[in-house]
Structure formats: structure tokens, C-alpha cells
């Protein structure tokens, strides 16, 4: 089991390095001089050059890249903001928990709604519930999250005056943002659960279970669901990644001081170190989430965990010959 985890971790490393490289490369390719943009047209060429020197922007590309990576790996230093000279790392760390908790709550809500609906939809295919839920998920997936957020604000904040429209100071501030993100995710999870269950229910081993005289509810719960949940977990991992991206939108609309809002503000001011650091951080978190999902697979699906035990047994067997 441990070998499995280590192997997956090892496979993740080059991807993470690749992400750093691509994000770094793309941003450094800006045709306009970022420092000029930051300092404005009023600044003299000297001031621009000075700051460029200070930021190490006159070094060759790979030197910059190497220094950047070195700083991240050794000191956890993502550089400093062009705008306010504050270290990017501390900005990210202070705001990430907000974004993370928003994303977690949303995915939990989404799973709590999506998985049971998917199961019921599958077991009662073509029923009113199934059709209703399918319709709902089609509409949810089509609605842009920023639009949904604004609609919720219009209805619940401005007209009904029930919920606050901005800020993040207490539980009532969480309701609308979580619903905004959660709805789309719930729809995705519901669809995956439904199609996965439909496929599993058609399998022969479900018929075997019924032929044993097993109760239908247990057939669904123990035999069908256990097998069907596997692709659903993958989707949940991907959805989580989508949400990290979607956090950008929701935090902007609801004025939530999270990582997403930091990124959006930075893109407006062309504060490249902040953009770089923020995107990288999110991408790394996403990679870890996927790693976690892979590991979870190993626990849930016995075919994967035994694969490694068998390999080990074969090795031992071969060594003993």
C-alpha cells in the first residue's frame, strides 16, 4: 500500500514542476513590460530600470526560473508583490483557508445532495423524480456561477433582505456563496452517480445477489453502490479543482477576502508575482487533491491494493526460488 502511495507521489512531482514552468513561462512572456505597467507612464526610465534590477528581471530566463523554484523549495518564498512589496507567500497563506473552507463546504453540500439524488434517480429511472432531477441538473450546469450568485444577491439580499451580500464574517455569509458553487457541483455529481449506478445495476453480479434471495435495499446499498461510487469519487476530485477556479468568481461577487479575489485584483494590476504564486498554489493543491483521490481508490477498490501485494508476493516467491 505504501509503495502505491509513494509511486503516485513520485508521478506527481514532474507534473508539479511542469506546472511551475508553464505558468512561469507564460507570464514572463508578457509583451509589455510589467514594471512599466505597475509604475505607470509617469515613472522615469531610470525608476523602471531600478525596479527591474531589484526584481531580478534582467537576468536570463532560466536563471530567473531556477531562482524562483529554489526560493519556493527552500524557503517557501513565492516572491514579493510588484505593487506593495509584501511577500506573496504570506498573502496566500492568510487568504487560502477562506477559499479552502468555501470549497470544502460547497463540495460537501454538493455530495450530500448529489449522491442520494443520483442513487434514487437510477433506481427509479424515468420516474417523475428522475426526470425532475435530470432537468434541474441540466439547468444548473448551464447557469454561469457568476450569474447565479448575482441572482441570489438580487433576490435574497436586495429584495428579501434576508442574507448579506458581501463579506465573510459569520455563517449567514456563507449560505449564498456555498449555494452558488455547490449547485453546479451537485448537478455534476448527481449525473455521474446516476449513470454509474445505472451501469452497475445492469451487471451480472447484481443478478447473482438477487438470486441469493437478498433484500433489494441491501443489493443496492452493498453491492451496487460500493461499485458505483468509484467514478463518483474521481468526479468529486475534479469538481474540487473546478471550484478552486470558480472561487475566483464567487469571491469577486460576494467580496470574500480569499485567494480568488487576490488573484482577480492582481490580474487587474498586472501584479505578476501574485498571479504566479496564486495560480501555482492552487494548481499544487489541486494536484494533491487528485493524489488523495488516487490513494482513496486504493483503499476502496480491492483490485488496486491487491495488485501491489501480489507484485510483492511474486517478488518474494521469485527470490525464494
Amino acid at each position: 500500500m505504501l509503495t502505491y502511495i509513494l509511486r503516485r507521489l513520485l508521478m506527481m512531482l514532474p507534473v508539479v514542476v511542469g506546472v511551475v514552468f508553464i505558468v512561469f513561462a507564460i507570464l514572463q512572456l508578457t509583451p509589455t513590460d510589467p514594471i512599466r505597467t505597475v509604475l505607470g507612464d509617469m515613472a522615469t526610465q531610470e525608476e523602471v530600470d531600478m525596479m527591474r534590477e531589484e526584481m531580478g528581471l534582467n537576468d536570463p530566463f532560466f536563471t530567473q526560473f531556477y531562482n524562483y523554484v529554489k526560493n519556493i523549495v527552500t524557503k517557501g518564498d513565492f516572491g514579493v508583490s510588484y505593487i506593495n512589496r509584501k511577500p506573496v507567500t504570506s498573502e496566500i497563506i492568510s487568504r487560502f483557508p477562506t477559499t479552502l473552507s468555501l470549497a470544502l463546504m460547497s463540495i460537501l453540500l454538493a455530495a450530500a445532495i448529489g449522491i442520494p439524488s443520483g442513487i434514487i434517480s437510477a433506481t427509479r429511472q424515468y420516474s417523475l423524480f428522475d426526470n425532475g432531477v435530470t432537468l434541474f441538473s441540466l439547468i444548473s450546469l448551464a447557469m454561469p456561477s457568476f450569474w447565479l450568485g448575482l441572482m441570489l444577491i438580487i433576490i435574497f439580499s436586495l429584495n428579501l433582505r434576508l442574507l448579506p451580500a458581501s463579506g465573510f464574517y459569520g455563517p449567514q455569509y456563507w449560505i449564498m456563496p456555498v449555494i452558488t458553487i455547490g449547485t453546479g457541483c451537485a448537478a455534476g455529481i448527481m449525473r455521474t452517480t446516476r449513470s454509474s449506478m445505472l451501469e452497475v445495476i445492469r451487471q451480472d453480479y447484481i443478478r447473482t445477489a438477487r438470486a441469493k434471495g437478498q433484500k433489494e435495499s441491501i443489493v443496492i446499498r452493498r453491492h451496487a453502490l460500493g461499485n458505483a461510487i468509484i467514478p463518483v469519487i474521481t468526479i468529486m476530485g475534479l469538481q474540487f479543482g473546478r471550484q478552486l477556479g470558480g472561487a475566483v468568481l464567487v469571491e469577486t461577487i460576494f467580496a470574500i477576502p480569499g485567494l480568488g479575489k487576490l488573484l482577480v485584483d492582481a490580474t487587474a494590476t498586472k501584479d505578476i508575482p501574485v498571479i504566479q504564486g496564486g495560480v501555482l498554489f492552487m494548481a499544487i493543491v489541486f494536484s494533491f487533491i487528485n493524489l488523495f483521490v488516487d490513494i482513496l481508490y486504493g483503499f476502496i477498490d480491492p483490485r488496486i491494493s491487491t495488485m501491489y501485494r501480489m507484485k510483492k508476493a511474486k517478488k518474494v516467491g521469485a527470490a525464494n526460488e
Binding site: 451480472d204 447473482t208 480491492p302
Partner: peptide, 11 residues
């Protein structure tokens, strides 16, 4: 049943 490969629950 006919096909033993699929008649047993894999998990």
C-alpha cells in the same frame, strides 16, 4: 449463471 467472470461482486 453463465459467465463466471462477471457473476461475482468485484469489491
Amino acid at each position: 449463471f453463465q459467465d463466471p467472470m462477471t457473476s461475482l461482486n468485484p469489491i
